[in-house]
Computed example of a mutant assay.
Amino acid sequence: MIDAAMIWNEPNNKSHWDPEVDPEWVRFGQMVNLAADAIAQANPDVTRVLGGISPIDPAFMLRMKKYGVLDRVDAVAVHGFPLDWNLWQIHDWPQKIDEIRAVTDLPIWVSEVGISTFGAEEVQLWGLQRTAELLKGRVARIQWYSLYDLPREWEATTRHREAEGSSYYRHFYMGILREDGSPKPSLEEFAKHTPELGLVQWFHYQDHRLDDAVAWMKRLGVTHLRTGLSWADSFRPDALAWFDRQMEALADFNVTVTFCFTPEHRGIAPHHTSAPQVPEEFAAFCAQMIERYAPRSGVTLASNNDAVLAV
């Protein structure tokens, strides 16, 4: 069910990693190294990917190289949103890829790229067309963010909130489907670029959109999907049953699973962006998920009645 494991998400963005707890990313590097080794031990055939960086910063990649992280992963990833949040133009995509290629020989994935319809749906349509022109054939994998708009009653996973004008609200309009499941103009355009373009869709705990999302992705010709399994969610009631349901529903796709989000009670600070108190616990969670959903050949999937690893 899993062909790639992405270790964390946007580690150089304070919405996903707290630089006050770990200002030099030393703890992050240690955590990634432990997790990468644990994933490799669980199943060496699973591709290990460093969590997509945002902003695209070659200096951060060099820092990861210094910490030995790039020796333990099979690919690196970047995220870009030039029409919404980044301080560069959409036409700069080739230059941004070349900046990372200059500091590593590893394959480069664009594991999140997207354009909001906050201002106008026509902007997303044009942006999708131009993004495909600029990135197809240039990187190892492209994953469009996202399938669905974020429901307005939910919260976006960011620390910025309303402090930066429209920035926060753009998070809610990234889908090629509206919140009610109706298609935007860009949906038909997206289908022209599959399977080369994959999708990113985060599924919240007990997400009501899961089955409809699977049906839409098959209709669109999507073959590879990036989603997440949250370490924090693993402490919820019936978490493993939800993980099983999610992964079984996605069994027909090549799935990149992102492992991230620190449980509040296991962080140095009580927040999902905090470095963990014991990084080996995160590594153990990653290994358990790989053993369960991407077991080595000949290994039987664990029973649905198994408990989540106690840490």
Rank of each mutant, 00 (worst) to 15 (best):
M1A: 07
I7R: 06
P11E: 09
D18W: 04
P19S: 08
P19C: 06
V26H: 00
R27W: 04
F28N: 01
F28V: 02
M31N: 05
V32G: 01
A35E: 05
A36W: 06
D37P: 06
Q41P: 01
N43G: 12
N43I: 00
P44Y: 05
D45Y: 05
V49H: 02
L50G: 00
L50N: 04
I53R: 06
P55A: 01
A59F: 01
A59P: 00
K66C: 00
Y67A: 15
G68M: 02
G68D: 08
L70V: 08
R72I: 04
V73M: 11
V73L: 10
A77E: 13
A77N: 10
A77D: 14
G80N: 03
L83R: 13
L83Y: 06
L83D: 15
D84Q: 10
W85C: 04
W85V: 10
N86F: 08
Q89N: 14
I90K: 03
H91S: 15
D92S: 15
W93A: 14
W93E: 06
Q95A: 13
K96M: 15
E99I: 01
E99A: 13
A102R: 08
L106T: 02
P107D: 07
I108T: 10
V110W: 13
A120K: 12
A120P: 00
V123L: 12
Q129L: 05
Q129H: 10
E133H: 08
R141I: 01
I142Y: 05
Q143K: 08
L150R: 03
W154Q: 01
T157K: 03
T157Q: 09
E162Y: 12
A163E: 07
S166F: 02
R170N: 00
H171P: 04
I176S: 09
L177A: 04
L177E: 06
R178D: 02
D180L: 06
E188Q: 13
E188W: 05
E189L: 12
F190G: 09
P195L: 03
L197R: 01
L199W: 02
V200G: 11
Q201K: 14
F203D: 12
Y205K: 00
H208N: 11
A213Q: 11
A213D: 05
A213K: 07
V214P: 11
W216Q: 15
M217Y: 10
K218L: 07
R219C: 00
L220C: 04
G221K: 10
T227S: 15
G228S: 15
S230K: 05
S230W: 14
A232R: 14
S234G: 07
R236S: 13
D238T: 02
D238Q: 15
D238M: 13
A239T: 11
A241G: 01
W242K: 10
D244W: 00
M247R: 12
A251H: 10
N254Q: 10
T256R: 03
F259G: 03
C260R: 11
C260A: 12
F261S: 07
F261C: 03
P263I: 09
H265K: 13
R266K: 15
G267C: 06
H272E: 10
P279Q: 11
F282W: 08
I290K: 09
Y293E: 01
Y293K: 02
A294M: 07
V299H: 09
T300H: 06
L301T: 15
A302R: 11
S303A: 14
N305Y: 06
A307L: 13
A310S: 10
V311S: 11
